[in-house]
């Protein structure tokens, strides 16, 4: 019984020693492989940086494009809606509204302008802010505010 226990303990000792020796060898091998992989990753650092840059740029561009208000269709509708005998004196176009000052020979042309804007779905609301008549030249000057 006692001899059996002693032999068992010796076997355990030998087994643990062998396991430790194997672990040390495996650890050394793994460390060498990790070192090689780290060198590989470092050599690809530029590529990684480029990838990060591209991803960041793409995300930023998508975000900016989604936030951007396109002016081209709005400006097209604005210019195309001005009747030929209406003289555009000035305009100020923003994201949500615009104001314009026009000169006409008749108030009916203002009505046509407003009608054009509504027909083109360009305006949700048109406010006539002022309308004056220059009686010497028989010319109407009208300032409108258009809400998109």
């Amino acid at each position: 019984m006692a001899w059996g226990l002693i032999i068992l303990i010796q076997l355990l000792f030998v087994a643990l020693s062998l396991y430790n020796a194997r672990t040390v060898v495996l650890t050394k091998n793994l460390q060498a492989e990790i070192k090689a992989l780290e060198a590989n990753v470092s050599s690809k650092a530029l590529a990684e940086e480029k990838i990060r840059g591209v991803i960041k740029r793409t995300d930023s561009l998508q975000r900016l494009e989604s936030q951007r208000v396109e002016y081209t269709p709005r400006i097209e509708a604005f210019v195309n809606g001005i009747p030929s005998n209406v003289f555009l004196y000035s305009s100020f176009i923003q994201n949500d509204k615009m104001s314009l000052t026009v000169r006409t020979q008749s108030p009916l042309e203002i009505a046509l302008l407003i009608s054009n804007y509504f027909n083109a779905n360009f305006a949700k609301e048109v406010v006539i802010q002022s309308a004056t008549l220059d009686s010497t030249e028989n010319e109407f000057t009208t300032t409108l505010e258009v809400i998109f």
């Binding site: 081209t72 400006i75 097209e76 210019v79 555009l88 004196y89 000035s90 305009s91 923003q94 994201n95």
Partner: peptide
């Protein structure tokens, strides 16, 4: 008459640009 073309050129240029406002004066 050419303002839409100008605005389109700015918005479709290679460099991304966001128009904030447009003023015109005769």
């Amino acid at each position: 008459d050419s303002i839409p073309q100008l605005v389109g050129a700015i918005e479709n240029a290679e460099r991304f640009a966001e128009i904030r406002d447009v003023r015109t004066t005769a």
